[in-house]
Design a protein around this nucleic acid. Structure first.
Lengths: 347, 347
DNA sequence: TTGAAAGCGCTAACAG
DNA sequence: CTGTTAGCGCTTTCAA
């Protein structure tokens, strides 16, 4: 352990001013306080000379604000969340905030973290998980004064602002596209629904599109799997093992599962898109480089992160209690895994 | 803003004891302090009743320790780093520490973050970047009392402990494997070397293996590209455009670039591994699900993270200045992208 | 076995 | 325009 820490007192002594002046100069407090240019220069020079760095912890304690937001990431291995986090971080940085990412795959941990979140370390939370138990804990935290935003939450009207995309619409978009391409036996890979409080919106969209297309729903065509690449691989194998006639197209819960499906299909010698079309959900960057390239319903991931941060920021600054619920558009990204046929997208 | 925060004073009042007692009970201070079981019970009950959560910021200020480590991640989009971070986090959690991940793709930002880092926010750093400028700043931070560990740093003997793998050996391992498989025209996709202070170790290994195999080095067979999937795609196309005879195998800088290469090859109608073999580096999980599955030199990513954390932890607790330099083993993961032939691996 | 008091480094009234 | 003062909520001697 080296030399004692340099504090604002040291800088004050070095510059021949009071410690208050140092604080005022360095934190650029707006207020009515005025410091002469000469003094400011001296302080800045002294701080520079001493290599002074303000103690962030002391600042936080005094200000009762840490300028840090916690992002609870329920699936750190999913590039989609990495993209959302990146968007939030970019936006936070501009506002002088930091985003602390807590990788929290399971529910107990999430509840735990939330319950500790009033420890002054964080001014707010962005919650990626949609679990009801977790949401309940979030409402507690809210009551204790935390600023919070949930992602994709669909529960009953809550006090929690939400950033979402219309996944039911997305499921419909994907399935309708497949129907448009001429498919009538369309399989669906669904997640195991760890957060199954609300039965899959994507699946609801799939069902509605089938209905719109006058196609009878065959329960044999839906298989539930783990939300991961390996899970998609396994689910696809399961689907194929269900016997003939097999589906000519598959709508996967997300790109991760779609990539797994692509792998299973390749391993089994089933050609994509010739023998079977595959469509994913999320539109992660990786999808542009799979073999074949993945067609997907893309979410504006970075934008989701950005808006989420902006919402907590506004909450923190008492701005606009108006827009507490942001819905962002989805769009169809057509690549190779469904064969070729461009159609209009949108919403 | 709701009700005032609950402090240890509130708990003390509720329990009819002094605030000191509350602190002693709740922080389980070891020392010579003794609290009767009865008092302890009352304090615990009162805290529970009030929903008291200790203010972490105040604790940090007083203890001069935040139990937080910053991980500087130079490539957040690379799953390899996500795996390293996950390893560090798992290990940190057990020790009661948090890992704060700063996504810092560029050098200026890294320097910036490091320069602000004695702010009491962080007790230490794990540095993923290998840039010299960044390392210089790290040494400053060290002098300010920060515990630091660098990943893969190869510079002259520094005061900074390092966790590394022998990438030169890895490059040799990959290339020798290709030679073993009968290849003699072996291309190499190399990164653009943003951190080019030390010219590629992997490339050095490649060259040495060529030499060992009695193969003349053809500079035409090395192409430099951006360290990303798209970069690998572009580099592969560049390599193929250099005319005949084209290589029968390619060693990519890492799995990300290898995946890009796989994509380019597929797009160009070149079959892998029949027409050309591809080997990557890092051994990311995704490699098990590409088409074809990727053969790679695997790094023990989670282990790298774990050891890095353990090193800063030891530093923080004044333990063993002995092992300041950990080298972890690499191993060949044989999948499909080079065709089939098992050989022994190791080191 | 418990409590009083000092102070971590900083900000924000309020005086001057 | 600048300095004095009073804490933020907690840990930690030291004394009772």
């Amino acid at each position: 352990m080296p030399a004692r820490r340099i504090t604002s007192h040291d800088v004050a002594r070095e510059a021949g001013v009071s410690q208050t002046t140092v604080s005022v100069v360095l934190s650029e407090t707006p207020g009515p306080i005025q410091i002469s240019a000469a003094t400011r220069e001296r302080v800045l020079a002294a701080a520079e000379r001493l290599g002074y760095v303000p103690n962030h912890v002391a600042q936080s304690l005094r200000r009762r604000r840490s300028r840090t937001i916690t992002f609870i990431n329920p699936a750190p291995e999913n590039p989609y969340f990495a993209e959302v986090v990146a968007g939030a971080q970019a936006s936070a940085e501009q506002a002088g905030y930091s985003i602390f990412v807590a990788a929290v795959p399971d529910r107990e941990q999430a509840v735990n973290i939330l319950s500790q979140l009033n420890a002054g370390t964080s001014d707010g939370v962005i919650l990626g998980s949609r679990d009801e138990a977790v949401m309940a804990e979030l409402r507690h935290a809210l009551r204790r004064g935390l600023a919070a935003v949930a992602l994709q939450y669909m529960g009953e009207q809550s006090a929690v602002p939400v950033v979402r995309t219309d996944k039911e619409f997305g499921g419909h978009l994907a399935t309708a596209y497949l129907i448009d391409l001429g498919h009538r036996r369309i399989g669906h890979l669904k997640d195991a629904a760890a957060y199954a409080d609300h039965p899959g919106e994507r699946t609801a969209g799939y069902l509605r599109a089938l209905d719109d297309g006058g196609i009878d729903f065959d329960p044999n065509l839906i298989v539930q799997g783990k939300n991961s690449i390996a899970g998609g691989d396994a689910a696809m194998r399961e689907l194929l093992s269900r016997g003939r006639p097999r589906p000519t197209a598959v709508f996967a819960f997300n790109d991760l599962m779609a990539i797994g499906a692509l792998h299973a299909l390749d391993a089994l010698g089933v050609r994509v898109p010739d023998d079977i079309a595959v469509i994913g959900f999320d539109g992660i960057e990786l999808g542009a480089f799979t073999n074949p390239e993945l067609t997907s319903v893309a979410q504006p991931s970075a934008e989701v992160g950005r808006r989420a941060f902006e919402l907590v920021f506004d909450l923190l600054h008492g701005r606009s209690t108006e827009v507490r619920d942001v819905t962002l558009p989805l769009r169809l990204v057509i690549r190779d895994s469904c064969g070729w046929k461009a159609i209009s997208s949108g919403r």
